[in-house]
Each structure stands twice: as C-alpha cells, then as structure tokens.
Simulated assay, not measured.
Amino acid sequence: MTAGQASDLLQLTYRPDLDLLVGRWSYQPDPALLPAAYELLTARALESGCSYWLQDIRRRAANDPAITRWLLAEYFPDMARRLNGRLRVAYLTGPALLEQIVAAPDFVPAKDYAGKAHAVAFFGDEGAAVAWLQEQRG
C-alpha cells in the first residue's frame, strides 16, 4: 500500500481547538491494508503529540480479530508510551458494528481501563465520543 492509498483509506485531521486527532476510515479495508494506515496514524499522532483520538469507523462493517488483538496488546500500549504515557481512543461506529463489538467475548468496557496508560471506548454518537475524550483529560 502506498502513502496515497493509506490516505484514501484513512483521512486524518488534527483539531488543535479540541486537541483531538480525528481519523475517518473511508471503507472496509482488506486487513493487509491496515499496517500502512496505522503507520500513517502513528506519524500524524507523533507529529501532533496528540494522545486523544476520535476514530470514525462507521463505514466499516467488521473488525479483523487479529488486528484487534494487535491494537490492544501492542499498538495502543506502545503509542501510549510514545505519547508521554497516555492514549485515549474513542471509536465512532455504526449500530451493527457496535453491537458486534460489545457482544464479543473479549470486549473490555471503557471503565475497565481505569488507571491504565491507554483506554478505548466505543460510541454510536460523535458528540458522546468527543465528550468522553474531553472527560479523559481530568
């Protein structure tokens, strides 16, 4: 995947007014395309120094279990370390994907991340996702 293909899949915008890194995923990707997209996300996050991310995955219909395990076990902890010990990620999902995620046997609710360097939460409403990210600053 080229940088251009990665930016077609994932549009990233740093919002300095909210100190949020907003990622909008354009379509359901083949899992083979995800590493390059996450390289782009990593570069933008480190460039902005932003550890509060809103990831809009409403155009995705499924999560790849291997990628999800990698995100939770390796990527998010590593990014938290690289971003001064803290990372908060709010995922904005469509209703069907949100139902799949919450029903998964290995789902971890946001409250279970208390005291950890990284936290992940899922929302069906963008306002609620942004509010959660703002609350995480306290």
Rank of each mutant, 00 (worst) to 15 (best):
P65A: 09
A104C: 07
L9F: 08
P16D: 15
Q5W: 07
R137F: 15
A128V: 02
R82T: 01
W25K: 02
Y27C: 13
L9E: 04
E39R: 15
K111E: 06
Q100Y: 07
L9V: 15
A3M: 08
L97P: 05
G85Q: 11
P35N: 10
R86K: 12
E39L: 13
G115T: 04
A43V: 04
Y27L: 10
Q136R: 09
D112V: 05
L18T: 08
L92T: 00
A66C: 02
S7R: 14
P77R: 14
D8Q: 13
D64V: 10
L87R: 05
D17C: 12
V120P: 10
L20A: 06
P105C: 09
R44K: 09
E135T: 02
R15M: 10
V22L: 07
V102L: 04
D64Y: 08
A117G: 07
A129Q: 00
V108E: 04
P16S: 11
R69P: 12
A103H: 13
G4A: 15
Q136D: 01
Y75C: 13
A129P: 03
G127A: 01
G138L: 12
I57T: 13
A96E: 00
A61M: 05
S26P: 13
Q5E: 06
L12H: 08
A114Q: 12
Q136T: 05
A96I: 01
P31D: 15
R81T: 01
W70D: 07
E74S: 15
L34A: 02
P65M: 10
V108Q: 05
F76V: 13
H118I: 12
D64E: 08
Q28Y: 09
D30M: 12
G127D: 00
S48M: 04
